Deep mutational scan, measured.
Amino acid sequence: TIDEIIKALEQAVKDNKPIQVGNYTVTSADEAEKLAKKLKKEY
C-alpha cells in the first residue's frame, strides 16, 4: 500500500540509505518527500 511505501521511505531516510521504489531511486529526505507527495496524488 501507499502507507507502506511511505514508511519504507521514512525508514530509509533515517538510515540514510538510498532506496528503490518502483522506477524511482530515492537518496535523500527531500526526494523521499517529493516522491511521497507524488504517490499520494496518484493513488
Rank of each mutant, 00 (worst) to 15 (best):
K14Q: 08
D3F: 15
N23I: 12
V21Y: 08
K37W: 06
K41E: 12
K7T: 06
E10S: 05
E10Q: 10
Y43Q: 11
A29Y: 04
K40V: 08
N23H: 08
A8W: 12
T1I: 08
K38T: 07
I19V: 13
E10T: 09
K17C: 06
S28W: 05
V13R: 06
K7I: 07
A36V: 15
L9F: 02
E33I: 14
E33Q: 12
A29S: 10
S28V: 03
T25H: 12
E10Y: 15
Q20S: 12
K37T: 12
E4Q: 11
Q11S: 07
K40L: 13
K14Y: 10
Q20H: 10
K14W: 12
A32V: 04
A32C: 03
P18E: 04
K7C: 08
V21D: 01
V26K: 01
V21G: 03
L39T: 00
K17Q: 08
E4R: 07
L9R: 00
A36E: 01
K14R: 13
I6D: 00
K37A: 14
K34D: 09
K34I: 11
K40S: 09
A8R: 10
Y24L: 08
T25L: 14
A36G: 02
L39A: 00
K7V: 07
T25D: 06
K38Q: 11
E33C: 14
A32N: 00
E4S: 08
I19Y: 06
K41W: 13
K37R: 14
A32H: 00
Q11F: 06
E31A: 04
K37E: 12
I2R: 04
N23E: 14
E10G: 04
K7A: 13
D30C: 12
T1L: 10
Y24T: 04
D3G: 09
K38C: 15
E31F: 04
A32W: 04
N16T: 04
A8K: 08
Y24P: 00
I2K: 02
E10H: 06
L39R: 02
Q11T: 06
K7R: 13
V26S: 03
L35V: 03
E31P: 00
V26E: 02
D15K: 04
N16S: 05
A12L: 08
A12R: 02
Y43K: 09
K7D: 04
S28N: 14
K7H: 10
S28M: 03
A8E: 05
K37P: 00
K7W: 14
T1R: 10
K41I: 12
L39F: 06
K34M: 13
D15L: 11
Y24V: 07
D3E: 14
